[in-house]
Every structure is written in structure tokens, then in C-alpha cells.
Design a binder for these strands. Sequence first.
DNA 1: GATCCTGAAATTGTATGCAATACTGACTTC
DNA 2: GAAGTCAGTATTGCATACAATTTCAGGATC
Lengths: 222, 222
Amino acid sequence: MEKRKRSDQMSDEIEERIATGIYPPGMRLDEVELAASFGVSRTPIREALIQLSSSGLVEIRPRRGAIVADIGPQQLWEMFEVMAELEAMCGRIAARRISKEEQAALVAAHEACETAREQNDADMYYRLNEQFHHLIYAASHNSFLQAQAAALHRRLKPYRRLQLRVRDRMNSSFSEHAGILDAILSEQGDLAAERLREHVVVQGQRFADLVSSLPRLNAASR
Amino acid sequence: MEKRKRSDQMSDEIEERIATGIYPPGMRLDEVELAASFGVSRTPIREALIQLSSSGLVEIRPRRGAIVADIGPQQLWEMFEVMAELEAMCGRIAARRISKEEQAALVAAHEACETAREQNDADMYYRLNEQFHHLIYAASHNSFLQAQAAALHRRLKPYRRLQLRVRDRMNSSFSEHAGILDAILSEQGDLAAERLREHVVVQGQRFADLVSSLPRLNAASR
DNA sequence: GATCCTGAAATTGTATGCAATACTGACTTC
DNA sequence: GAAGTCAGTATTGCATACAATTTCAGGATC
């Protein structure tokens, strides 16, 4: 029945809490406290923290405990720069390799986004936007690239959350999606890449600006 | 004095043994055996395996133990496709941002490669080649990109090892390096990107071919 | 001979105990 | 009053013990 191990469940749960801001960047993650709250021993918690540390969501400072990764605007921008390139790559390849079924799915996802936009439902748009992008990753037919893009996407989630409802972002995002979709469907790989890169860079710029205007939790964590 | 934890040392050591082929792809990694051979308990070994699993070098199948990742030619090619893009990105940005000091270091590394080539020292060339590429990563001045490129480079190490001495590879590699260096120094980012991409893709093609001609250890590991 | 039990042995996953290091805060010294 | 010192406490890192699951050998059945 249940095949996964507890440490993996703990990892997912902690990641979820980081992504949703329950555990905000800079927060200390106490092993005993977490263990108690999840009703398990420290071992699976430790293993989960190690996993999250490898994926970058958590920072483990030897003998000094773990904290939720708190990255500055500089590194955030660097990560978006890479994200933009990965997505551009996905788009360029996807334009060549996408199947009819995947085209249909992508169009459907885009139209679903339109619905969310019309209803001005930011949460829904957020989820559907995610789906749209993941479909492009998958359409690259490079499972490793897909995994890398998805991993970095997840890594950036705690920060995306911050500007879910920036004014008018949905509209501009949606029209950018239209351009991207068009380029992919017409097999213009380089154009799709360029538009995706721009789409992500714009987001990244916004996020980095936002974060730099925010106070950091653990300013003196060295 | 010693600030690192044992599990990190174990991780490094096991990674090294994987990279050098002491633990070949597909090999089973028994926790008690490893613990005994390193003179530690299972705990740090398990933590090390989890880390290596996150970076992809090791595959942990729940309740069924860990094995050295054994990827097929298909995924190997996918990984090189991504590696090519990451390196291209490094090169494109590096051409814009490289400092005078970094230019000098890169030229020096290239010249060192030339020496190794003249002496036909494949091992030395291998190391210096690595250094050359890492200098380009660093010159991108995007520490996250640098880390990602380095991580994937490491991930591919066990396979690079396989064709260290392919006939005449040193010469063609070296002349490709010359073209890359030239493009970077003359600030032609797109050209540098294109040449780096090609440089890596050629390698990837060779590796994938080589691996596909090799017998796999754990062909029936499902 | 192949397939299906079945139970012991082996191996992983989790909990707990102990040792080593880092943190805290009162006290001392200047 | 600020900085340094030195116990005492808290927390992490590692070892060990136990539980849960898988693996595998040896028969039984067809």
C-alpha cells in the first residue's frame, strides 16, 4: 500500500510549507520541534532536511542547524536568469518536437488561463500558468531538461508566491503566453525561445525588485 | 579544526569513487558494507547516499537499497544537451562580463592545455580541460549558473572518464577551445555560445555512442 | 522442469541513546 | 559600561537498537 518512506513524506510536507510561506525564508528549522510536530523521530526529519538542502530550499550549517534558504535579490536574479534560459531551451526544442496531442493540451491550458483571467481569479491563474509552463517542459521530450526546469521552478516557488496579485500581471502574462503558444505552434523555435526568455526575465526582474524592497529575516546569519 | 561532518566526507569519497569508476554504474551500494569499509556507522553513510541521490549520482529505491546511477544512452544524450546549453549560456554571458584578470587566467589555462597536448598527456589534459571550462563558468559572474554547470559537469564525470583517450580527441578539443577563447576575448557572446554548444554536443554524441555500445550492468533492475 | 508457497536471513527504515560542539547568560575585569 | 571568560544548557552528529519489508533458499504441487 504505502511504499514511500516517511523521510520523503516529511521532505514533501516541509517543502510545501516553505512554498506556501508557512516556513518563511530565514526561519530556523529545529529538528526536535519538527519531529514532535510531525509525530516522528529526528531521523526522518534529518533525512528530509538533507534532501531539501541538496535541492537548495534549506541551508544546513554544520552543527548550527538548518534554516529555510533566504537568498538575496542578487542570487534570486541569477536564478531567474538561468530559469529563463532553461525555459527558452524547452520552448526552442518543443517547437520542433511537440506532438499533436501536446499541442492540443497546450492550447487547452492556454484557454483555461484565459478563463481564470476573465474571472480575475489569481490563485487559479497561478495554478494554470504553472501547468502551461510544465506542458512546455514536457513537450521538449527531454526528460532530464524537463526535470531540471521543474526543479528550478519549484525552487523559486516561495518567491513567486510573493507577487501573486501584482496589478495587471495576469493580463500581461496571458498575452505573453499567447505569443509563446503561437511561436511553438508555428514551429518557430528561436522565436518561442526568445519570447519565453523575455517572459521569465520580466518576472525575475519583478521578483528581484520586490525582494530587494523587503526586509530580510536573518540579515546577520553569518 | 575539522568543521565538516562525516556524512559530507562520506559523500565526497563515494562520489569520487563513482567518478573514477571504482564504483561503476549499476553497482549496488550496501550500507553496512560501506559503513564497515569507512569505519563509521550506517547513519553518515545513509545521509551521504541521500545527498548523492539528490544530485542524481545514486539511485535509491525505497526499501530495496541504493545503486550507482546507471543511465542509458538516451538520458545521457539528454543530459549533454542540457550541459551544452548551460555552457553556451556561460560563454555568452562571460564574453560580456569577463574581467581582465579572468581573461588572463583563461588564456593561461588554454596554454596549459597546449602543453599537455604537446606532451600527449591525456590525464593532464583532462584536468586542465576541466579547469578551462570552470573558468568560463566563473567568468559568467552568475554564481548560481556556475554552480549548476559545475554540478552537471560532475554528474557527467563517470561517463567522461570512459573516453579519456579516444584517438585524436585532444587535438580537436584543443582547437575548439581556441575558437571559444577567441570568441570570448573578442566579446562575441553569441559566437562563443555557439562554439561551446557545439564543443559539448560533439562530446555528448561520442559519449552516448560509446555507452550504447557498452553492456549495461543492471539491465534488468526493475 | 516450472511455478507457487513459505519461512528464515538479510537489508532497509525508524527510534533512541550518547558524545561533541555551539549557544547562553551571569560574572569578572578593565 | 563594554568586553572577555567560563560554566551550564541546548542542539546537532553519530552509533546502536529495534521494527518492517524484501530477498532467497528449499520444498511442495502441478
